[in-house]
Amino acid sequence: MLRDITLGQYYSTDSVIHRLDPRVKLMGTLCYIISLFCVKNPLGYALCALFLCIVIALSKVPVKFMIRGLKAIILLLLIAGFFNLFFTPGDPIWQWKKISISKQGIYMASTMVLRLALLIMGSSIMTLTTTPNYLTDGLEKGLGFLKVIKVPVHEIAMMMSIALRFIPILLEETDKIMKAQMARGADFESKNIIKKAKALVPLLVPLFVSAFRRANDLALAMEARCYRGGEGRTKMKPLKYKKSDAFAYIIIFAYLALCIFLGRMLFS
């Protein structure tokens, strides 16, 4: 189950999207999120979905991989859908005692679920096609101007990059400790909430101990390799805009403009 989380996982292949500058992809993701909240009509959603489909197709990431990422947040989707379905006031089309489903409810629920799903897939396409190192490079350079107001941009980027590298390792470790405790009779499947919380102690304590040990080891290893912060560091893969990046920017902004335009149209 833990392997299903696609967010933060890099899918290694070579595609147009993979080759884009991370800053473009960051900006693209931001624009995509904005666009999702701009559109208000089915045509707009269709446009959003179409745009995402084209990007996914270009990225060569298997659709299966994307769907699997959605599995992890299926509960979130269901909850969002549920609340919107039953608690949106409007013209009821089905009623049972105090519970009712309205036309608006159905519309709200479906757009909400669609919006969330698109949002998750849209952002995961960024992490799937960008090595976290590039991603943090992109953040570091893209947000470099914040250094002027003393924001430790390099340090934050490095922390993110390390966190991303250790997520799969810690997930595997969680799985292992869980099994080891189950072999000693621990019950992680109990329905009782208090019991469930209690059962987490034998899992969380070893996990934290291990995380601290790893952090300590890693800090030593980084120092041993002369890491001393961002000062005086050169880049193995310095970021440089190419022609394709400029082209991508144009497409992204055109897309965003179109979405905003479609959103406005509905109101006018």
């Binding site: 292992k176 400790i177 099994k179 080891a180 072999a183 102690v201 034998p202 070893p206 101990v209």
Partner: peptide, 12 residues
């Protein structure tokens, strides 16, 4: 009984 690899990592 199953003793995993590096079982000391399960002490809590």
């Amino acid at each position: 009984g199953l003793v995993f690899q590096y079982p000391e990592h399960q002490l809590f």
